[in-house]
Amino acid sequence: MGKFAQEFAKGLIITNPVLVLLLGLCPALAVSTSIDNALGMTLAVLIVLLGSNIIIAAMRNFVPSITRIPIFIVIIATLVTVVNLLFHAYLPDLHETLGIYLPLVVVNCIVLGRAEAFASKNPVVRSIADALGMTVGFMLALLMISLIRQMLGTGEMSVFGVHFFSLPVLSSRPVAIFILPPGGFLVIGLLLGLFKWTGVLKR
């Protein structure tokens, strides 16, 4: 397996940002109420993480360690704001669905975490692979959580307005707690427990 593929693949399961590194739990809990939100969030994270990993990897040889965190944060905040503005202007529907969670990508620990732990020590190409892998890992985790939450919390299976099916009892009497914050904790906790128990995520 080539280096690029290796850096990409590790983010999926072995060091899955949400399920193993337990990073970015705040957005993972907040936006996982529906599959739409999960996918929209993934797109935003993809752009920001890819951008920040590339820029930070390119700058890694001359960024002094004493000011690296402020520099990383300024770069990440800028990317997030740019994404926010572009979504607002060109993808208004998605911007509306994501609402406050889009600007909150700036405090997503995955982005700063990868900048600090990977991009600042590795060349650009490997940082791109890392960003892509981490984003896909983030997406997988979010899709899993949001699928469960959306199904139980609304009883409807629909993505971006396209309705697939409704669950018989749940659609008329949804278990609303699953799309509320406590439901996020419940689902993510149970998923983590399940993975630990079955050993799927064992390194």
Binding site: P64, I66, T67, I71
Partner: peptide, 9 residues
């Protein structure tokens, strides 16, 4: 340099 770089960024 750190200050200059941060300002530039």
């Amino acid at each position: 340099f750190p200050v200059i770089l941060l300002t530039a960024v």
